[in-house]
């Protein structure tokens, strides 16, 4: 398989549009912490998403 190199100085207008909606305060916060802490936060986010999904399923089951 060929590798493809792209000139990152060439901007994509769609990507630029998406950038306007990014909360850079969260990125800055993440850049202050270690790689390990970033993964710990990710796992906490996964747990939260799973609990949310679980409670949504339970609520739907009760409704039916």
């Amino acid at each position: 398989m060929n590798t493809i190199r792209r000139d990152l100085s060439i901007t994509d207008p769609v990507v630029e549009a998406y950038k306007q909606g990014i909360d850079r305060t969260l990125i800055r916060e993440n850049l202050r912490i270690s790689v390990q802490e970033r993964f710990e936060n990710l796992m906490a986010l996964q747990r939260f998403a799973e609990e949310l999904q679980h409670s949504k399923t339970q609520k739907r089951d009760h409704t039916i």
Binding site: L8, D12, V14, V15, E16, Y18, K19, G21, I22, R24, I27, R28, L31
Partner: peptide, 18 residues
């Protein structure tokens, strides 16, 4: 991936400011 690329490029820009 467009939204992902946008965030990664924003990270690159923020890294340059540090």
């Amino acid at each position: 991936d467009l939204e992902v690329i946008a965030e990664l490029e924003a990270i690159l820009e923020e890294q340059k400011k540090i």
